[in-house]
Design a protein around this nucleic acid. Structure first.
Lengths: 332, 332
DNA sequence: CTGAAAGCGCTTACAG
DNA sequence: CTGAAAGCGCTTACAG
């Protein structure tokens, strides 16, 4: 057995100073002579001293911990988590990951529990919650929901920004497409609702035909079934899928019917998943910088924890990537 | 402002007992009269009491925290993280997520830092580390590496188990295939090495031709380039890709050359990614239960933390899923 | 069966 | 500029 972690007391003894001097030297807070400070720092480093966070947390009454809530659903949350963890670490926070399943109400309850539990200073959730069910007292930790979309809740709306779909539909109309179909994501995702709403507004505004909105899950099966359910004379058709997984199912459904792209059908996805450039045909989609989204979400949570106003990021998180699944388009 | 979190002292006052009695009642450890215990529990619950983990940790000299190390790479780690978090939570541990980038040496250094830092009781890494570089003292926290493959390191070898590839190659040979190619994953992944080794052993053992081992990254680009680099007379060929992303690139490369599956080429992947059932043709692959892999990895870490022998799981984590990309096979 | 008390390792007024 | 001391909220021998 070797020695346990050195404490500030051990460092003090080795440096020939008092324990409080060690603390002041390390924090840089008190009025410490530069020579003393450097000496203490050198001794602490040579001993491999690391402050005990539990003790610090007890004394400061701040846990130094933030919770991030994720779920098992397959999507881009690991990249968001990566970005969020980076920013939290730079700010001196540890991130506790919580994996939550169940209904939206279950998840909301778990998030509320975390915010009220006093173990964390803030909660960032990557899963939709039900704002009306998220009853938090004044002393609960702040909650930031990524891509949630409600006034009561602090939110990072950028992932729910669907405005680029206007660009996509505009270009397809410009290329001669007159009939559209939307395969939507789950209703409780703000991003899915926003994409559906922009789709409906765009087809109405541009006076083109819509065969409606179908789907409701982030799954290739939804896209495949949407195409298989179409009448033969639905062609030519432009299918706007709410994400790349759904769009992949659209490609698959078209292949099963013997419909070819882009002649019978064109398709678009969302997210620029790793597979999107390698399907046949490759998928036109909207690329999203999820890692940066995670960074921004965490910055927003940190601002809430500190009671500051969050910085309003200006650079866009999304851009359109045109590929083969939409066929040739007029330049512009 | 409302009141801060109640402490065991507050509960004691409200229940008319001493603070130590509250502690014994909650932990169930001391010799507490059942009536007293129930009363304390009821009062604590009514006040919404939650023990301060920092204080507990300070007193018990155990942090109650485990670190999980992930990275930004796109793969199935979120599902593994989900499983690991579940098991840790059930065991009363909080999980700190650390996102690490850089070279294998950088990552190893970060993992070693975490193990030595004294803030966590154990470290689970989903990224490969360099065992030789992971110099840990006796008092460092135990490290478990998922799919690492070295004697020095505790490891969960199941994800690196490539034996099912023998089944796959056997069936393909039985169907008449005589020429194979392997598109491998990165050398520092134990799973990639194991798949390559089984591939080489199987083609040698069965006396079929191998065009070699190419690749080296978990990316569709590697699969696509491998196919584009083949001579025209490589057909008919069976391509064994180290994962589904690579296999997707193989499909794409074949499409670009005008080669059809399964006539000119058959292909297999690994992981059963969500897209694998929806490519055209759909992908024969080896399905892996990543969530269960995460659970088992965390159980292994918990066993190491407790100094126990880990349970040896018996149910398989992987199974072959035959789909269109390998064409029709003889029954059996 | 219950309570008084020590102590985990810090931070931070306060005294010198 | 430095040190002695209090106290954060628990757990756990120990005394009664």
């Amino acid at each position: 057995m070797s020695a346990r972690q050195p404490t500030s007391h051990d460092v003090a003894r080795a440096a020939g100073v008092s324990q409080s001097t060690v603390s002041y030297a390390l924090s840089g807070k008190g009025t410490i002579a530069p020579r003393t400070r450097e000496h203490v720092l050198a001794v602490a480093a040579s001993m491999g001293y690391r402050p005990n966070l539990a003790a610090r947390s007890m004394r400061t009454q701040r846990s130094g911990r933030l919770a991030v809530v994720t779920g098992a659903t397959v999507d881009n949350r690991l990249r968001m988590l990566t970005g969020a963890t980076e920013v939290a670490g730079e700010a001196g926070y540890a991130v506790d990951t919580h994996s939550v399943d169940g209904t939206a109400e279950d998840r909301t309850e778990r998030v509320a529990d975390l915010a009220r539990g006093g173990q964390v200073e803030g909660v960032l959730t990557f899963l939709p919650v039900v704002p009306a069910a998220l009853r938090l007292d004044d002393d609960a930790a702040p909650v930031v929901a990524v891509a949630a979309f409600d006034e009561q809740l602090r939110t990072t709306g950028e992932l729910a920004d669907a405005s680029l779909l206007g660009t996509v539909i505009g270009a397809l109309v410009g290329a001669g497409h007159r009939r559209f179909l939307h395969v939507a994501g789950p209703e409780h995702f703000a991003s899915a609702r926003a994409r559906r709403d922009v789709y409906l507004a765009e087809v109405a505004r541009r006076g083109v035909e819509s065969l409606g909105v179908v789907g409701g899950v982030w799954s290739p099966a939804a896209g495949r079934e949407a195409v298989l359910a179409l009448p033969d004379d639905a062609r030519p058709l432009a299918v706007i899928a709410a994400n790349d997984h759904i769009a992949l199912g659209v490609l698959r459904g078209a292949a099963e019917r013997g419909w070819s792209l882009p002649g019978d059908l064109v398709a678009t996805g969302w997210d620029d998943a790793e597979f999107a450039a390698y399907t046949t045909p490759s998928l036109t989609t909207i690329s999203v910088d999820f890692r940066e989204a995670g960074r921004r979400a965490m910055r927003r949570l940190l601002a809430a924890v500190r009671g500051e106003e969050p910085a309003r990021p200006t650079t866009p998180l999304q851009h359109v990537v045109w590929r083969e699944s939409t066929g040739p388009l007029p330049a512009g």
